[in-house]
Amino acid sequence: MDKFSLFVPNFLPCREYFDPGNNNACPGCGLALGVRHVYKAADKAMEKALWENISDTKFFGIKTNPSLLKIKQKKNELIICLDNEAGGSLRDALKKQMPGMAVAEGFKYVATACPSYPFDLYDKVKKALDTEGKSYIHILCPCPEGWQFDPENSVKAGFSAVETLAFPLYEAVCGFYTLTVKTAKPKKLSDYITIQGRFSGVTDSEIAEAGAIVDKEYSKLLEKIQSSYSYTFETTGKVY
């Protein structure tokens, strides 16, 4: 039912900043779709801000392989990670450490997003660009070539990642977590794994193991959300 929020695409600004002629992305590239919506959300910041590709730098002391994009403005700095999980194992795919690290490093606004939920992504980029200080957005970009599925299912793969809780969409404002896309009835993790050709060699026991990882990660996240909720409630008396 939550798909009905998608009725309003016509309200998005129709100005395109993204020039597909200048990229050689494959058909159905989730990364291209993500970048397109980031540009759309950045809107006026497109011209003024400083854009930098910092893919080869070390981030949080670890070597990163995802592409990192830095948008530098006068008051703030936004780092966007376009993660297509290239070359990662199933374990790596399910355990995302970067957002947690960003929160620990004191980033003011940290969020995870996926181009299959363009409004969510749009809001998050807008919020990050309005936040003073550093912010970080981790975008999961389904990659038809790397994940080995039909390009037309690229958006569906993103839905699947979120609906199976493999990649929950949340944001952390000053360390206070909230879920932005709620999944009432999570789907089985195997749905997400079996659509991807790259995991075709994964056995049932490995899937069960992966399920345990997902459950653990998600309950950790829920704990964080619960504690931030009660903290804000106790200190301010307001429910956000």
Binding site: G21, P27, P118
Partner: peptide, 30 residues
Amino acid sequence: CYIYCPDAAVYRLDDGFFDVENQKCKGCGI
């Protein structure tokens, strides 16, 4: 269709319907 096209190939016509730009579309089928 407009919002999910990774190559921004779908555009809105004046009457509100959508169409594709032949030069940009990569035929992904999204």
